[in-house]
Design a protein around this nucleic acid. Structure first.
Length: 406
DNA sequence: CTTCCACAGGAACCAGCGGACC
DNA sequence: GGTCCGCTGGTTCCTGTGGAAG
């Protein structure tokens, strides 16, 4: 092989020398907590003041933080906790911190498991009774003279799916502890979930309440400018692109997390295209890409029967009843030679799909024609086909749907 | 005004699983 | 090895219901 003007070393050398438009990609991740939180001084102050009694061994009030997604609730809570834990550590004050996202955790057991783990209490990740984990947490706190501060993020999820039993136990934990205590910081982006709470739990949890307003476009601009300064090489991200990203995110209820995502993805698009700048065009592309990616992921990770329901809806005209969808669905099951689920279950799957925004499931009543949902595909048919064509089980059925829709 | 359709969706229950405890 | 635990993902049975047709 003639290698006069080609050497593998050159390739690597070029790759090494190639300067990225990114300076530090990590600061552009949406879970990154910056050193400085803009426009949240007031909230930080209130949270810190509420929690601070812990430093002289008194029980702080429970808190409840409320605000839309991406308004800094989690960031503020974690920020204050991390500062506090540094101080507590240096002064050897007996307090431990736990953070649990109850939606990620999923079940009551996992929530308790994560609390125990953050408190450095060894517990098995399954197999115990809930009351047993409670006992172990309380025993450890009492024995080691540690109090516990717990952040329960997305607490509305826990309550909606599992009720408030666990919260009830946690709020009255202090009756069982002596000398030490447990305090809670609940975080939610949905205020209506309070209706699900036992009044005793509600009054206990809401000893202190704090609302996080959405960021304005101007505020988002400052936040983004700061991240861009840290995350990108100088003069890469144009002013116009910054303005657009801030405006787009502000239009979506001032969600800072989404704004940062937008900036990062726009940068990745520019990098892939070997551009020296990130401009408005890449921000617009990023907006589309983020939506598209989320959709494809959601679709792909659906369980088999949910996918079949999606296909059934996709294969029908609009304005068709649940019954028709079910018929279509059981046809598909027959073609695959798998047993079909009951109507009750399919109705449930339809509701799940509607919560994911894949299918709308508005119920309408047509008098003597009965009462039913009008399932309708909310996403482009082409996306459904594209995703399912790559599915080892479903790719044959996609063709069938195409025929059906004529 | 009453009837009655075609479902919605709550409640109770079940099987199977992975795993801890003794 | 037997017993208990909680979770998932179902089933069965059931009552509830908006509004056009009669």
């Amino acid at each position: 092989m003639a290698t006069d003007n080609f050497s593998i070393d050159d390739i690597f050398k070029r790759a090494l020398n190639k300067t990225s438009i990114f300076k530090d990609r990590n600061v552009l991740r949406s879970d990154y907590i910056p050193d400085k939180l803009y426009f949240r001084d007031e909230q930080i102050r209130i949270v810190a003041e509420t929690i601070s009694p812990v430093l002289h061994g008194a029980r702080p009030s429970n808190m409840f933080l409320y605000g839309k997604t991406g308004t800094g609730k989690t960031a503020v809570a974690k920020y204050v906790f991390s500062k506090l834990s540094q101080i507590a550590l240096s002064k050897s004050i007996g307090v431990r911190f736990a953070y649990v996202n109850t939606r990620m955790a999923g079940t009551e057991y996992r929530v308790l498991y994560e609390i125990a783990r953050d408190f450095n209490i060894p517990v098995p990740h399954t197999g115990l009774a809930l009351s047993e984990i409670f006992d172990r947490i309380f025993k450890n706190l009492s024995r080691d003279r540690f109090s516990g501060l717990i952040i329960l993020d997305e607490i509305d999820f826990l309550v909606k799916s599992h009720g408030d039993d666990l919260l009830y136990e946690l709020t009255r934990a202090n009756e069982r502890l002596s000398g030490v205590f447990i305090s809670l910081v609940g975080i939610s982006n949905d205020l209506t979930f309070k209706e699900y709470l036992d009044p005793r739990v509600l009054s206990s949890l809401s000893e202190e309440e704090l609302v996080f307003p959405p960021y304005t476009a101007e505020e988002l601009k400052v936040i983004l400018a700061d991240r861009i300064r840290l995350g990108f090489q100088p003069n890469v991200f144009t002013e116009a692109a910054l303005n657009l990203a801030a405006a787009l995110a502000a239009a979506e209820h001032g969600d800072a997390r989404r704004a940062v995502d937008l900036v990062r993805v726009a940068g990745e698009i520019a990098e892939r295209k070997n551009l020296a700048f990130v401009d408005e065009e890449q921000v617009r592309e990023a907006l589309l890409k983020i939506d598209q990616d989320r959709l494809v992921d959601a679709l792909r990770s659906l369980p088999l029967h949910s996918k079949l329901v999606v296909l059934s809806v996709a294969g029908l005209k609009d304005n068709v009843s649940t019954g028709a969808v079910y018929n279509n669905y059981s046809q598909l099951c027959k073609k695959l030679g798998i047993p079909e689920l009951t109507t009750r279950r399919v109705s449930g799957l339809l509701n799940e799909l509607s919560m994911l925004g894949i299918v709308s499931a508005e119920t309408v009543s047509l008098g003597r024609q009965g009462r039913s949902k009008r399932p309708k595909l909310l996403i482009p048919l082409t996306t459904v086909k594209a995703v399912f064509s790559n599915d080892p089980v479903l790719f044959d059925l996609v063709k069938y749907v195409e025929d059906y829709v004529e």
